[in-house]
C-alpha cells in the first residue's frame, strides 16, 4: 500500500483547483492498486453519489494486451476527487467514461495520468462535466507516451456544460510524446445549453427543468455508452440532474 503523507497545497499542479480544506478531512488517501495480467480484462464502476467529501486514487497497471474499462459518476459530494494513474504495456487498452455533476459550492475533479509504456496500446477517455450554481468542475488529463511506445492511439474528449455563469470549469489536457507514429486526439470545450433547442423542447410542453434534463442526459450519455452498468449509471445521473435543476 502506498500512502501519500503530506497534505498537498494548490501549488501542486495536480491539486491546483482542489478544495484543500475538504481534502484535509479525508487525507491521507490510500492508493488503490489494480494490476491486470497479460491478456486479461477488467471493469470498474465508481459511483459517488453521497454528500460530504470523497477522494480516491487508483493506480492501474495493464499487462500486455490487457483491457480495462473504467466508468465514473461523481454526483453529490461537496468535494469529490477521482485520480487515476494508468500504465499500459504493449497492446493494452484503457477506456475511461466519466461524468461529474455539481451544484452549489461543490468542487469535483477528475485527474488522470495515462502512460503508454509499450507498443500499440490504446486509450480513450471521455469526460463530461455539468456545473450549476457556484460549483467548480475540473479535469486534468495527462497522457505520456514513453520512448518506444510507437503506434500509440490515445484519445481524449472533454466537455463541460455551465448551467449558470457563476460556475467554473477547468480543463487541462497535457500531452507528452516521446515515440513515433502516435495518434493523439484531444479536444476540450466548455459550453452552455443550446437556447434554441431548449425553446423547441419547451414549445412542445416540457417544463424548463425537463427540457434541460433531457439535453443534459444526451450530453453525458457518451460517457456511459457501452458500459456494463450503463442503465444504472444513467439512472443515478438522471436522479442527480433532476435534483440540481
Amino acid at each position: 500500500m502506498n500512502v501519500e503523507l503530506a497534505l498537498p497545497t494548490r501549488k501542486d499542479e495536480n491539486f491546483r483547483y482542489s478544495d484543500i480544506a475538504a481534502l484535509g478531512t479525508v487525507w491521507p488517501i490510500v492508493t488503490e492498486e489494480i494490476v491486470v495480467a497479460e491478456g486479461a480484462e477488467q471493469t470498474l464502476q465508481i459511483v459517488e453519489t453521497g454528500a460530504g467529501a470523497v477522494a480516491r486514487h487508483i493506480a492501474i497497471t495493464l499487462g500486455k494486451g490487457a483491457k480495462f474499462d473504467l466508468r465514473v459518476l461523481t454526483a453529490g459530494p461537496a468535494y469529490g476527487r477521482i485520480a487515476v494513474d494508468v500504465r499500459l504495456a504493449e497492446g493494452a487498452d484503457f477506456t475511461l467514461g466519466a461524468a461529474q455533476l455539481a451544484t452549489a459550492e461543490e468542487t469535483l475533479e477528475i485527474v488522470t495520468e495515462v502512460t503508454h509504456a509499450g507498443l500499440n496500446a490504446t486509450s480513450e477517455q471521455i469526460v463530461r462535466t455539468v456545473l450549476a450554481g457556484k460549483s467548480v468542475g475540473t479535469y486534468l488529463g495527462r497522457i505520456a507516451v514513453e520512448r518506444g511506445a510507437d503506434g500509440t492511439d490515445a484519445e481524449q474528449s472533454v466537455r463541460a456544460m455551465l448551467l449558470e455563469r457563476t460556475a467554473t470549469a477547468n480543463a487541462r489536457p497535457e500531452l507528452e510524446i516521446y515515440a513515433d507514429d502516435v495518434k493523439a486526439a484531444h479536444g476540450c470545450a466548455v459550453g452552455e445549453l443550446d437556447a434554441q433547442g431548449l425553446f423547441y423542447l419547451m414549445s412542445r410542453g416540457l417544463t424548463p427543468p425537463q427540457a434541460k434534463r433531457l439535453m443534459l442526459q444526451a450530453f453525458i450519455a457518451e460517457a456511459f455508452t457501452g458500459a456494463a452498468g450503463e442503465e444504472e449509471l444513467s439512472a443515478a445521473a438522471i436522479a442527480r440532474l433532476e435534483a440540481i435543476l
Binding site: D194, L201, R204, L206, A218
Partner: peptide, 13 residues
C-alpha cells in the same frame, strides 16, 4: 425545426 443531438423523438414526445 431545431436539431437536438442525443435526444430521441419518441423519448422527447
Amino acid at each position: 425545426p431545431v436539431e437536438i443531438p442525443g435526444v430521441s423523438f419518441v423519448q422527447f414526445l
